[in-house]
């Protein structure tokens, strides 16, 4: 099957009248079928906004999206079809379940929306519960408060997969779980992906978890994509200084090899008034005049690997970029 790719360029500041919070600004990327794309970044970098834009839970100000060759809207896929093809699992397992609905009611809701009869929907809800490892006889009639965090998150996943989507967006879906339960849910997600032939968009601030599940990784900073590439390349040979700092900030799991120097100073700036040019320049040790003047664009760093930094972009005018220019 050639040419089966999903392409989602989204552009434009997302904002309301008096304050333009540039939550997501000109983000473009694609996800191949059957792949897991990890999206990492710190709070306020626009990862969750991106997820909600993809689901059209909020309307983008600009940009368009192509799913499996079909554009969304403009005579292509309708919103309803989009939301059947793409589903989402949220971070907070409690808030994302209606406290007055049992597990079955929660799962059948979406099925009924898409015109499936009551008894048929119940049957499908049971098999979805079975798929996520919850015995239907025990859990079908439980309310959210009668389940543990891990069980609730499994119900959320069951609700997502019951509609038979092709893409599942996981927005910090395992972040709030206890470590011992997190591992169970991660294993489940990896199994489901294989069994149901799913494509994942895995959003998380936890770099270790993203490393564990992703094929490719997209790094965001203040609403922009700063780097994207295959997981091993990003984790071992990151080109963007922000990505490198982010990885250096990971906590060592070995008390004999503690982090000794602060990899990155300061806090992320306010997204209402982002810095000019490169948004990372205020915290970057390699910043030069060109970084304030010109916004860097993604440039190729190797196979499937791109980064938006003047220092690694040939002919950008950055002093470090010269050598690369000759090479290129």
């Amino acid at each position: 099957m050639e040419g089966l790719r999903k392409y989602f360029p989204l552009r434009g500041p997302l904002g309301n009248v008096n304050a333009h919070v540039q939550a997501v600004d000109g983000v473009s990327f694609h996800v191949a079928k059957g792949e897991t794309l990890g999206i990492v970044g710190e709070s306020g970098c626009g990862k969750s906004t991106t997820a909600r834009l993809l689901m059209r839970l909020i309307d983008p100000d600009a940009g368009n999206m192509v799913l499996d060759g079909d554009p969304i809207g403009h005579g292509g896929l309708t919103l309803r079809e989009l939301r059947r093809t793409m589903q989402m699992v949220f971070q907070d397992s409690y808030a994302s379940l209606n406290p007055r609905h049992t597990a079955t009611e929660e799962i059948t809701f979406g099925l009924r929306v898409h015109g499936i009869g009551r008894s048929e929907a119940r049957e499908q809800a049971r098999s979805a519960l079975r798929l996520v490892g919850l015995e239907p006889d025990m859990f079908a009639d439980r309310y959210p408060h009668e389940m543990s965090g891990g069980q609730r998150q499994r119900v959320n996943i069951a609700r997502g997969i019951a509609l038979n989507p092709r893409v599942l967006i996981l927005d910090e879906s395992v972040s709030a779980l206890d470590k011992s339960v997190q591992a169970q849910v991660l294993n489940l997600l990896i199994d489901l992906k294989e069994r149901l032939n799913l494509t994942y968009l895995f959003i998380s601030h936890d770099l270790n978890v993203v490393h564990h599940v992703s094929d490719r990784v997209l790094v965001m900073y203040l609403g922009k994509v700063v780097e994207v590439g295959p997981v091993e390349r990003i984790y071992q040979a990151a080109a963007h200084p922000y990505t490198r700092a982010l990885f250096a900030s990971r906590l060592s799991m070995d008390p004999r090899q503690r982090v000794d120097a602060v990899p990155l100073v300061g806090d992320p700036p306010n997204p209402v008034r982002p810095p000019s040019g490169c948004r990372f320049r205020t915290r970057c040790e390699m910043a030069e005049a060109v970084c304030a003047a010109v916004e860097p664009i993604l440039s190729e760093q190797g196979a499937l690997h791109e980064a938006a930094c003047h220092a690694v972009t040939p002919n950008s005018g950055h002093s470090r970029a010269g050598g690369l220019a000759h090479a290129a």
């Binding site: 909600r52 839970l57 994302s96 809701f109």
Partner: peptide
């Protein structure tokens, strides 16, 4: 989030109000 999740299934506003909000 659960209302958001319901919207993500493609449900209409009326349906969400009747089944999720009202309760």
């Amino acid at each position: 989030d659960y209302v958001e999740a319901a919207r993500a299934t493609g449900a209409s506003s009326v349906r969400i109000i009747l089944q999720h909000v009202l309760a």
